[in-house]
Amino acid sequence: MSSPDTREVILEARELTREFDGVKALDRFSFKLHRGEVLGLLGANGAGKTTAMNCLLGLTLPTSGELNAFGMPLQANRIEILRRANFSSAYTALPGNLLVWQNLSVFAGIYGVPNPKQKIAELMELLEIAHLQKRVTGQLSAGESTRVNLVKAFLNDPELLMLDEPTASLDPDIADKVRKVVRKVQRERNIGILYTSHNMRDIEEVCDRVIFLHKGKIVCEGTPADIVAQSSSSSLEDVFIKIARDGEIVDEPEKEKAS
């Protein structure tokens, strides 16, 4: 067992439940995210990862349960919390009809970033996309636009970052670059990140701790190494497949014999 994390809790869900038409997309889901920690949310398609993030961003209201960020109840302090947080997903985009620098200036303005020009240039440099400033956002490749989205996500120096499948649709080379830069910025600025991905390589490289979800419920949690050790599998990928199919992490011995 790893020793308990003594860092400040910046995000906490207690018994978070979200129903859609009587079906529980999240079922009494509880977790804590600490300052400077990267927490991976894993699970098959439909496990409830995006729903969890949407609740945490205040986009969807939970059916029941409690949400706190930076020690404040989320719903009542939404704007103040969002000022200190940010989000990026493979499934949203910045307006395709504007130039990259225009989009980033708009969001720098919304987040009240001081010295926006310098900040944008700095982050674009860091993500190796400085040459894209004057390009039309809608004409970028998937890899380029993911990195532009990440610049937007880092603009306000967030203390809390939600990344929903940031590496989806990236080739292995770009995915590797994105992971490395996320990890680098995260370490430098001590950001707490909630990270979802279907790419186990992502998870092993980026996440300090992971939670496996199945049908909205936590199946297991721990460091990637812990989880592999707990299971009878040889890799995180095998654990993932096992949970996706059976909803549990270890085979029950009786079942094994019976089959």
Binding site: L57, G58, L59, I79, E80, L82, R83, A85, N86, F87, S89, T92, A93, L94, P95, F107, I110, Y111, K152
Partner: peptide, 9 residues
Amino acid sequence: NLLNVFVAP
């Protein structure tokens, strides 16, 4: 872009 705006302050 709606989501970007709604998750911004």
